[in-house]
Amino acid sequence: MIRPYLTMLRPTQWLKNLMLFFPPFLAGYLPGGPAFTEGVWLFAAFCLVSSAGYLFNDLLDCEQDRLHPRKRLRPLPSGTVAPRAVTVICALLVLAGLGLARLVSPQMFLFCGGYALLLCGYTLYLKQLPVVDIFCIAAGFLIRLQAGGTLFGVTVSPWLFLTVFLLAVFLSTGKRLGEVRLLGEGAGNHRGSLAHYPEGFLAGTMHLTGAAVLVTYAMYTLQKPRLVYSVPLCLFGLLRYLLRVSSGKGGDPTESLLHDRVLLVVGIAWAALVVWSIHR
Rank of each mutant, 00 (worst) to 15 (best):
P69L: 01
K249A: 14
L151V: 10
L98R: 06
P23M: 14
S51K: 02
K71L: 10
G267N: 13
V213Y: 13
W159Q: 01
P11C: 00
A212E: 04
L142D: 11
I137G: 10
V274L: 10
R74N: 08
E199T: 12
V169E: 03
G178D: 10
L26S: 08
P4A: 02
L100I: 14
V40H: 14
F25A: 12
K224Q: 09
G267A: 09
L67I: 03
V275C: 06
D260P: 12
Q107F: 04
C234L: 15
G39F: 02
L242S: 03
F46C: 10
V275W: 15
L239Q: 08
H190L: 02
L162R: 11
F22A: 15
M219I: 04
S157L: 07
L95V: 15
Y241R: 04
K127S: 05
E63D: 09
L194F: 09
R66M: 12
T209Y: 01
G114E: 00
E38L: 06
S246L: 13
F22N: 07
L160E: 05
V180C: 11
M219H: 01
V104Y: 14
Q107D: 07
I143W: 07
K127C: 04
V40F: 15
L222P: 01
A212V: 04
L48V: 06
T12I: 07
Y29R: 09
G192M: 10
Y220S: 04
V245Q: 05
H196Q: 05
S50F: 03
Y54Q: 02
V265L: 15
L162N: 01
G237R: 06
H259E: 03
L222C: 03
K127H: 02
H190W: 09
L30E: 12
V156S: 07
T209M: 02
I134A: 14
I278K: 13
L171H: 11
L238Y: 00
H207L: 09
L145S: 06
E185K: 11
R102L: 01
R176L: 14
H279R: 01
F46N: 07
